[in-house]
Amino acid sequence: MAAVVCPGDRLHPVATHRAGSGTYVHQQHIHASLVGVSHLQPPEPGSDDQRPVVSVARSGAQPVLPQLGDLVTCKVTKVNPRLASADILCVGNRPLDASFTGIIRLQDVRATEADKVEIYSSFRPGDLVRAEVVSLGDSRSYFLSTARNELGVVYAKSAAGVQMVPISWQEMQCPQSKLVEKRKVAKTA
């Protein structure tokens, strides 16, 4: 059903439908909270709740905020012995207009041997890192984690200024100078 709705419009009663994104529930009714096209998604067969999901999708601008559990792409700005600070550039597939700050703490860099981590051997300023949001963090920044195989550095430049090639989950090599540098590399298979 492709009808354009306005915020505040009453869509369906809660008894027969479930509220999806772009809607909210008020007094047993589902109301739209965005201006956009409303979609009705049929329920998955075999799931407990057989109500279809109503959602309103906005074509055009959409506000993007990193939520808990999102996979984000960020660029490391500074490192110190306790943490690496990074600017979040993309949330999932959507780029952000203004960057948010995130930090990767020492204990969140990797899953194994978390107490023997050295930040400088895992990240360097300027690296592009794929990470997961584990907490909304303190007032200054989100808390990110790279403690999975597929998370970590995806792009790094060597001291010579050339993009490095990953050789293992801990090392990357510069094709020009053949020097090996240590990073926490993401497994992008």
């Binding site: 505040g8 772009g22 109301h31 909270s33 201006v35 906005r58 055009g60 506000p63």
Partner: peptide, 11 residues
């Protein structure tokens, strides 16, 4: 605010 796509309770 509606043009920016920020979720609102009502107009």
């Amino acid at each position: 605010v509606a043009d920016a796509g920020i979720p609102v309770r009502d107009m």
